[in-house]
């Protein structure tokens, strides 16, 4: 069985796992039901949805076994995410962490500069001028015009 086929099977199997977690743990212990209301319980829809999801996942599995959905794409990628995808995803969380630590404005300046380099903007001075200009415009727009208080981050709070 090729990588591709494995992936197609993995989705419904994973969904069935999610359904089991929902029905067995999440819905019974994380949906509050308090007396004093009538009609359907807050758990009704989560249960119905879980059941529907389980049914659909099973149908998907069945159709895979019958070989129906084995529609061959010309482009066959083996893993769901490849190395560059992980880099991109990690960089996003790095950006978020930077916002929390050093504040939104400096973090965004750094993110802009770093991403521009990754996007093959070669000249350093263009990168820096553009990133600085964009950051300045955003600060003026959000903080001054729209009076949004941008997060200062842990560092910002400690400094001033």
């Amino acid at each position: 069985m090729s990588f591709r086929r494995t992936r197609e099977f993995a989705v419904p199997v994973a969904l069935l796992g999610v359904c089991a977690i929902l029905a067995g743990w999440l819905i019974p212990s994380h949906v509050t039901v308090v007396g004093g209301g009538n009609g359907l319980s807050p758990r009704f829809f989560p249960y119905v949805l879980t059941a529907a999801l389980a049914l659909l996942a099973t149908m998907q599995l069945a159709s895979l076994f019958r070989g129906e959905a084995g529609e061959e794409d010309s482009e066959v990628r083996s893993p769901v995410l490849e190395a560059p995808d992980y880099v991109a995803a990690l960089s996003l969380f790095a950006y978020f962490a930077a916002i929390v630590v050093i504040g939104m404005v400096p973090a965004s300046f750094l993110a802009l500069a770093a991403y521009m380099r990754c996007f093959r903007v070669k000249s350093w001075w263009k990168v820096l001028v553009y990133a600085a200009a964009v950051t300045a415009v955003l600060v003026v727009f959000f903080q001054v015009a729209a009076s949004v208080q941008l997060p200062r981050g842990m560092l910002g709070r400690a400094l001033w």
């Binding site: 600060v139 903080q143 001054v144």
Partner: peptide, 20 residues
């Protein structure tokens, strides 16, 4: 006044070097 205040506020925030 609000707009002027907001502008001042932004400058205050954007200029951390100014001593308290």
């Amino acid at each position: 006044r609000k707009a002027a205040g907001a502008a001042l506020c932004a400058f205050a925030l954007a200029a951390p070097a100014v001593p308290a």
